[in-house]
């Protein structure tokens, strides 16, 4: 078998399930916490005297780890670790492992384990706290900065460029907000897409970047694509239900003709006999509003940029107009 001193590095997929599987494998290897380390996939410096083992993501193992964290360390700690696992930081996997190694070891009192993540003196706990805060802040910002535009068939489409994998964090918010809308939020950085069909559970379509352009051109192609889709709810059990409901969405898509969707969405429109307003007109109204709501005597572009950095403006309806003013 392996020598005692040789470091074994587990390389896991860069998603929550991947990291949790890595934690499971590293723990189950019984090599001792000091002799294992976790890395996420991606370009990193290789270590010379270490053995690399790649981790195959296993939903069941991940679920076990998630359940254990919840039971032993509490829901708040779990949420923090979950968010940290979504961060764009290669060291996150190892930090999570180190904190769990203390928190879940047999001797730790659960009263201590539940508050372990609050101990900012510990470098790993502190890093998880920082990453979690960073991810949460970005997710919160995007809850405001996502801009939908209506594309064919009344589908709402939005593009973002998020630093961290925030789509799973904003899915619940948007599907609660727009339960009767079909919407897509496409993340250019990760290439994933959040998909929500009216009155259905949302899911993350992994690797949508390759297929999405086609999809946008030909909406009818939607029902045929099941293979590239992968669910990733917060809760692995929920994820399974999502998988099931994904089939439901396809059926639902076929059932609902666009006419019927319109009626559900705007019962009052048809009643009042109002003509529909075009997408361009609405965008024009919004840009105009953003301009006229500003008080010229108080103009402060630095303050604006502090709250609303330029990187967010690229995909925002009112962003381009404001940028040119700077």
């Amino acid at each position: 078998m392996q020598g005692e001193t040789k470091m074994v590095i587990y390389v896991c997929e860069d998603c929550v399930d991947g990291i949790f599987t890595g934690v499971y494998n590293a723990w189950a290897s019984r090599l001792g916490h000091a002799n294992v380390a976790l890395r996420v996939e991606g370009p990193t410096d290789l270590e010379l005297f270490a053995e690399y083992r790649s981790v195959e993501t296993d939903a069941q193992k991940a679920q076990k780890v998630a359940d254990t964290i919840r039971r032993r360390m509490g829901e708040t700690s779990y949420e923090m670790i979950y968010r940290a696992a979504l961060a764009n930081a290669p060291e996150k996997a190892d930090c999570i492992y180190r904190v769990l190694a203390v928190g879940l070891s047999r001797h730790t009192d659960s009263r201590i384990a539940r508050h372990l993540i609050e101990g900012l003196q510990d470098t790993n706990a502190c890093r998880i706290f920082e990453l979690s805060r960073k991810v949460q802040n970005e997710a919160h910002r995007y809850e405001g900065f996502v801009r939908f535009r209506e594309i064919e068939g009344g589908v709402l489409f939005s593009e973002i460029e998020a630093e961290n994998q925030i789509l799973p964090l904003i899915g619940e918010h948007f599907s609660d907000r727009f339960p009767n809308e079909h919407f897509l939020i496409f993340d250019h950085c990760s290439g994933d897409c959040l998909v929500h069909a009216a009155r259905q559970q949302w899911f993350i379509w992994r690797g949508a970047g390759k297929e999405l352009p086609e999809y946008l051109e030909d909406r009818s192609g939607f029902s045929g694509r099941g293979a590239g889709r992968e669910s990733c709810g917060k809760d692995p059990e929920k994820a399974r239900r999502v998988e099931e409901s994904a089939d439901g969405i396809r059926k639902n898509e076929e059932q609902l003709s666009s006419e019927r969707i319109e009626k559900i969405k705007y019962p009052a429109y048809s009643a009042a006999g109002l003509p529909p307003v075009s997408e361009e007109e609405i965008q024009r109204l919004w840009r105009g509003f953003c301009g006229s709501i500003s008080i010229r005597e108080r103009e402060n572009l630095n303050l604006q940029r502090q709250f609303w950095p330029l990187k967010f403006r690229k995909w925002m309806t009112e962003g381009s107009g404001q940028e040119s003013r700077l």
């Binding site: 900065f145 339960p179 709501i293 008080i295």
Partner: peptide, 30 residues
């Protein structure tokens, strides 16, 4: 939380959607 029948929900901390050139947040259609 949304009732599922209409459109919309509210979250307690509030959300800023944009910022005007005077640096004030645009959250509501004022």
């Amino acid at each position: 939380a949304g009732s599922g029948r209409g459109m919309g929900n509210c979250i307690a901390p509030g959300i800023c959607h944009s910022f005007s050139t005077d640096g004030r947040c645009i959250s509501l259609l004022k």
